[in-house]
Design a protein around this nucleic acid. Structure first.
Lengths: 190, 190
DNA sequence: TTGCAATACGAACACTCGTTCGTAAATTAA
DNA sequence: TTAATTTACGAACGAGTGTTCGTATTGCAA
């Protein structure tokens, strides 16, 4: 039983995904980890601490991701394509915590909730700036940037939901198809 | 205070949307309705009954909607466009119950849960059949129908989340932009 | 081996949950 | 009016919640 702490986080992410944060009890989590409920608290401070870690780890991941993409010398088209691929990759590789990150963050309590929303707004601003640039350069259709962004961000959110953990050989194909569809919806038609 | 029952359903939908089904207590709902907790049970049988009504009313609405669209003499392109518009309209017109329908159905208990999932599968089959037809007729890109469907269904799901109840004059524009973006991602490029 | 820190446990606490029940008030029908 | 039905209430029940605490047990360094 090496690294119990991480084991707890992983099983919690699975449970939070399966039943939601609120419907998951610490007693249930304890069973999955193979401990008594009280023993969990030798490793973690609270239930919400688990949620916090999952949410902020994911937030950081996406912010680092978009910053790396943004500082490369790429066209707006290439940047958006890279961002879409980032979302697909994370959703497939770590679908449990992606679900939690997407759907359970609202159960964070203040002040962590505001902190999380601030990070998300930061990410969205970067995203929108790239879209605006693409429109200005005539590469993208002239649509409201926030509409484009929300539509793109939403459209990949079924993956983590439908995807089962484990390797799937059809992943590269899936990625290609989604990217093709979304990008040709975004780019100007000639 | 006419029609208390409906008032309860409406306030419940708002609360379920705000905090989620699990995080909403009957005592909280009672405050919103202006009753004591126990008095709620003069009108409803249980908390889950409320969730059931919201989920199945919405399911029916979409199934009726897609059937009406499907039996008209329309091209696959026109049908998918109509379905996308249906989703956008419902999301804007009744964003509270749409949120519940989308995110809280999993808290239904058996056998209602299976019943709900059966309805959803029915809807998805109809949806996929139209996509398959569109591909066969050379109107749509040759992509996996389920990938197309999930991407389309997901991509409109930010609306009910972001939209605030009440009339919004920018709605027709929003609808046009989303439809344009999604349809040009779906259709073959010439 | 001894000593110390990390880990595990059982019991229990304070609280919230959805719901029930007997009864009183309000509304409607006669 | 009276009689019957619907609606509202306060109190309470039983179950489940996250968490704490004192105390064992374990694993590891000296």
């Amino acid at each position: 039983m090496k690294n119990r702490k991480q084991h707890i986080y992983e099983e919690a992410a699975i449970l939070f995904r399966e039943k939601g944060y609120m419907a998951t009890s610490m007693r249930e989590l304890a069973v999955r980890v193979g401990l008594e409920p009280s023993s969990l608290y030798s490793h973690i401070k609270s239930k919400e601490e688990i949620l916090r870690k999952i949410c902020f780890d994911n937030a950081r991941r996406f912010i680092v991701g978009i910053e790396e993409i943004d500082q490369n010398f790429l066209t707006p088209t290439q940047k958006i394509e890279a961002i879409i691929n980032l979302h697909i990759e994370v959703a497939i590789e770590d679908c449990t915590s992606t679900t939690v990150f997407n759907d359970e963050w609202r159960h964070l309590s203040e002040p962590k909730l505001s902190e999380f929303l601030k990070l998300r707004r930061l990410y969205e601003e970067k995203f929108k700036r790239i879209i605006t640039e693409g429109i200005a350069k005539g590469q993208f259709k002239n649509l409201k940037p926030s509409t484009v962004m929300y539509t793109l961000l939403s459209s990949v959110r079924w993956i983590h939901y439908w995807h089962r953990p484990g390797k799937d050989p059809r992943m590269p194909e899936l990625k290609k198809e989604i990217t093709l569809m979304l990008m040709s919806g975004l780019k100007v038609s000639h």
